[in-house]
Write a protein that binds this DNA or RNA. Structure first.
Length: 275
DNA sequence: CGTGCTGTTGCTAG
DNA sequence: ACTAGCAACAGCAC
């Protein structure tokens, strides 16, 4: 379920642990996950090289050395876990990043929707996976205006629009529903019918829910874990996601579920009636 | 034991 | 040009 708050929580933990250290060896247990892994280049970039930064762009984690970056995407079920080398190997462990004889990081991803890739120095804005990413909701300025402008030509539902990573990054199925509930906007409203004021409300709801989720270590429905293998705790604070037929925390009416582009959307038909 | 869901992303067909 | 649908995969609830 990794959306922005989950990746941010992971990145913070990994950064704390790995900054200034380096990988002694790397082992790939299969040559591909979602696509072939650039094994040779990743080793060249990382092995013996001091880690100078661990950061996040959208839902991608980036581990930097003087030679370039390792890119990590968790897909739907990925984990990047700090382990002891003698811990039993979990099923679907695809790569081992060894720090020393006591500590290694394991990339585990049953569904193999994740990715491991290399990014060259200076390629941060041109790498195929990173080039088309939209604004960072927690860091960039004028997100509301950007959403408003981008929405002018789009008649798709606002929930789908919010999940479009070429517009704004980090918002997946859970936080899209949650943010629209907070903004009291119906998820099926066409994006181009909303005003700048609506997008100001949406942008602040997005910021708010993402920040709160990060403060709780993210949301764990099933698979997400931080680097220590611990789940997040924000799921107990979800207002609408997964709450079909449960009472709306605001008005006590029943939460509804609809399918948009094949994915479940949850909302309160009474609070979010503007459509 | 099928069938239909599940957190993502990018390609394709319309 | 935009958008809905699907594929990639494993696991689990029903």
């Amino acid at each position: 379920m990794p959306e922005l708050p989950e990746v941010e929580s992971l990145v913070r933990g990994v950064r704390k642990q790995l900054l200034g250290r380096s990988f002694k060896s790397i082992k790939f247990l299969r040559p591909d996950i979602r696509e072939p892994i650039p094994v040779k280049r990743i080793k060249e970039i990382l092995i013996g090289q001091k880690i100078s930064d661990v950061s996040r762009r959208g839902k991608y984690m980036l581990i930097r050395t003087a030679r370039g970056f390792l890119g990590v995407h968790l897909g739907m079920s990925g984990r990047f876990i700090e382990s002891s080398p003698n811990t039993e190997m979990a099923n679907h462990t695809h790569a081992l990043f060894c720090v020393n004889d006591r500590v290694e990081y394991r990339f585990i991803d049953p569904r193999r929707f994740g990715r491991l890739f290399s990014v060259e120095k200076g390629e941060l804005h041109s790498h195929p996976f990173l080039a088309k990413l939209g604004k960072e909701p927690l860091e960039d300025e004028h997100v509301a205006l950007h959403l408003y402008q981008e929405s002018r030509k789009r008649s798709q539902a606002v929930k789908i629009f919010l999940m479009d990573s070429t517009v704004v990054v980090g918002i997946g199925n859970i936080y899209a529903s949650e943010a629209l509930w907070r903004a009291r906007i119906h998820p099926q409203t066409k994006a181009n019918l909303l005003s700048l004021a609506h997008y100001e409300s949406i942008a602040s709801s997005v910021t708010e829910v993402l920040r709160e989720a990060i403060a709780h270590g993210g949301t764990t429905l099933k698979d997400y874990r931080d680097k220590d293998g611990n789940p997040g705790y924000f799921q107990t604070n979800l207002a609408v996601y997964g709450k079909e037929a449960k009472p709306c925390p605001s008005c006590r009416q029943m939460i509804a579920k609809v399918i948009q582009s094949g994915r479940s959307t949850f909302f309160c038909p009474f609070c979010q009636c503007a459509k």
